[in-house]
Design a protein around this nucleic acid. Sequence first.
DNA 1: TTTGACACCGAACGAGTGTTCGCTTATACT
DNA 2: AGTATAAGCGAACACTCGTTCGGTGTCAAA
Lengths: 224, 224
Amino acid sequence: MKDLSTLSERQRSILRYMEKHLAEHGFPPTIRQIGEATGINSTSVVNYNLNKLVQAGYLSRSSHVARGLRLVKPLQGEKKSRAAVQVSHGPRVYLIGQIYASEPVPVPEDYYYDENDLIDVTTTMLAGADPSEAYALRVCGDSMIDAMVREGDIVILRRQQTANNGDMVAVWLEDRSETTLKYFYREGDRVRLQPAHPLMEPIYVNPAYCRIEGKVLSIIRQLH
Amino acid sequence: MKDLSTLSERQRSILRYMEKHLAEHGFPPTIRQIGEATGINSTSVVNYNLNKLVQAGYLSRSSHVARGLRLVKPLQGEKKSRAAVQVSHGPRVYLIGQIYASEPVPVPEDYYYDENDLIDVTTTMLAGADPSEAYALRVCGDSMIDAMVREGDIVILRRQQTANNGDMVAVWLEDRSETTLKYFYREGDRVRLQPAHPLMEPIYVNPAYCRIEGKVLSIIRQLH
DNA sequence: TTTGACACCGAACGAGTGTTCGCTTATACT
DNA sequence: AGTATAAGCGAACACTCGTTCGGTGTCAAA
């Protein structure tokens, strides 16, 4: 089997694109997509180079079928994540709505599925929760500064209506008509809700008016 | 949120065939292949059931492309080999060190690769950067409250030593012996570094002492 | 200089493939 | 019995997509 050094630069870029497309889409690219991505103007030149990659042992092909390419051996010797060689994505959860300080927390029961709302997460963010148990909300407004979250942040939660001490929870406070994200502590017959910001004071609430809607698993801030 | 038990027998057999075809071929089946394998005579019925599986969170689809199916979540509650279901990561980057307010920012050039330092991220977090261009740092201490980050948060960066206005950057301020994460704005011959916290004041620094080490792409907070 | 292999190209073709339409049947509810 | 919804169906259409054809250009070897 030939090694990497005999591949042309075009062939290496085809393999890189193949890996990238598999990682991003979960299925292989078409010959035309490969051509567009690698600057090859002709489907027959892409076809020629794909056959070279088959001969070199990097790909296998099924003929006369759409996307009939399989990555047999990923490109090596280059600095890249290993995930690129996988067929499918990591876990994804539904972004079911926005969380406002002045409105009740959206919950999964009221949500209608839309594939466009799926967002990528990582296994670590789910903290052991199954993706089907978790969901995401986008923060609106800057009224949750005390939770160290700001407008646009995405909060990953698991649906639950009880909490253990130390859990960060999304709660709707009925007597205040307010949603907040805070650390939950049961103290006697009161609940202490502790802000994430170390310099801010907790609030104490009557558990009867404290409706826990979910436990916060992770927070994501994207700066672009 | 629907669970597995709401799937019909046909839908479960579609998922089983999907997993089998991916394992065997490395690319998804067509609608006609699914129909043949599951005894569904009509492409529109296959289409209908695939849309149901999308709603239930098991698949995602790209429309108007051949084999535009991706297995998002495998069928559970059944014994199968790991090879049968290509559970995988998304992209991963190296967590190369910790970021302290009082020490220079760690940079990739000084890092020795260790596979155990790889962490999962998502494509969205990378904001168009290739995983090989990006790296992560873990925040130590609470001295970056003004950046709305706290101890334990993970910052995803791309290595760069220049910035555009509005970029959040990791900078080492030589005259202050201080690292900070702030929004960068060039104003005349000064640089304004704007905290993320909306109620805090910016600082103005001499660009000569302002060493940009990377651009912040995303921030991840895990609460467990 | 000639030749052969390799890499590349545009265009056309035809098979592969997903979507849409108009319909029927089954089931649950009133 | 009537109605609404879910599930199913066949066919047609239009687009996607891989293969093939007939060619050009480059380079190394004879």
